[in-house]
Measured scan of single mutants.
Amino acid sequence: DDWEIHFNNITIRLHGVSEEQIEELKELIKNGAHEEELRKWAEEVNR
Score class of each variant (00 low, 15 high):
1 D>E: 13
1 D>T: 14
2 D>P: 12
2 D>L: 13
2 D>A: 11
3 W>P: 02
3 W>Q: 04
3 W>R: 04
4 E>C: 12
4 E>G: 03
4 E>Y: 13
4 E>W: 12
5 I>R: 04
5 I>N: 02
5 I>V: 07
5 I>H: 05
5 I>F: 14
6 H>P: 04
6 H>L: 11
6 H>T: 14
6 H>S: 09
6 H>D: 04
7 F>T: 03
8 N>G: 14
8 N>W: 07
9 N>G: 14
9 N>I: 10
9 N>C: 14
10 I>S: 06
10 I>P: 01
10 I>C: 13
10 I>D: 03
10 I>V: 08
10 I>K: 06
11 T>S: 05
11 T>I: 13
11 T>F: 15
11 T>H: 06
12 I>K: 04
13 R>D: 06
14 L>C: 07
14 L>I: 08
15 H>Y: 15
15 H>F: 15
15 H>G: 05
15 H>Q: 07
15 H>L: 10
15 H>K: 12
16 G>K: 15
16 G>F: 14
16 G>H: 14
16 G>S: 11
16 G>W: 14
16 G>C: 14
17 V>W: 12
17 V>N: 01
17 V>G: 02
18 S>C: 04
18 S>T: 12
18 S>M: 04
18 S>V: 03
19 E>D: 09
19 E>T: 11
19 E>A: 12
19 E>V: 13
19 E>P: 12
19 E>M: 11
20 E>R: 12
20 E>Y: 11
20 E>N: 09
21 Q>C: 06
21 Q>P: 00
21 Q>V: 11
21 Q>I: 13
22 I>T: 03
22 I>E: 01
22 I>G: 02
22 I>S: 02
23 E>Y: 12
23 E>A: 12
23 E>H: 10
23 E>F: 13
23 E>Q: 11
24 E>Y: 11
24 E>L: 09
24 E>H: 10
25 L>G: 01
25 L>M: 04
26 K>A: 07
26 K>H: 08
26 K>S: 05
27 E>S: 14
27 E>V: 13
27 E>C: 13
28 L>C: 01
28 L>K: 04
28 L>W: 04
28 L>D: 00
28 L>G: 00
29 I>E: 00
29 I>M: 07
30 K>G: 03
30 K>M: 11
30 K>H: 06
30 K>I: 06
30 K>N: 06
30 K>R: 14
30 K>F: 06
31 N>Q: 10
31 N>F: 07
31 N>H: 06
31 N>C: 09
32 G>R: 03
32 G>P: 00
32 G>N: 04
32 G>I: 01
32 G>W: 04
33 A>F: 04
33 A>T: 05
33 A>D: 01
33 A>M: 11
33 A>L: 06
33 A>H: 03
34 H>C: 11
34 H>A: 13
34 H>N: 15
35 E>Y: 12
35 E>C: 11
35 E>S: 06
36 E>M: 09
36 E>K: 06
36 E>A: 10
36 E>R: 08
37 E>L: 07
37 E>Q: 10
37 E>D: 12
37 E>A: 11
37 E>V: 10
38 L>M: 03
38 L>Q: 00
38 L>G: 00
38 L>I: 13
38 L>S: 00
39 R>H: 07
39 R>F: 12
39 R>L: 14
40 K>Q: 09
40 K>T: 04
40 K>I: 06
40 K>N: 06
40 K>P: 00
41 W>L: 02
41 W>N: 00
41 W>E: 00
42 A>Y: 11
42 A>H: 04
42 A>D: 02
42 A>P: 01
43 E>N: 07
43 E>K: 06
43 E>M: 07
43 E>P: 00
43 E>Q: 08
44 E>S: 09
44 E>R: 14
44 E>M: 11
45 V>D: 01
45 V>L: 10
45 V>H: 12
45 V>M: 09
46 N>W: 15
46 N>I: 14
46 N>D: 08
46 N>F: 15
46 N>P: 03
47 R>P: 11
47 R>L: 15
47 R>C: 12
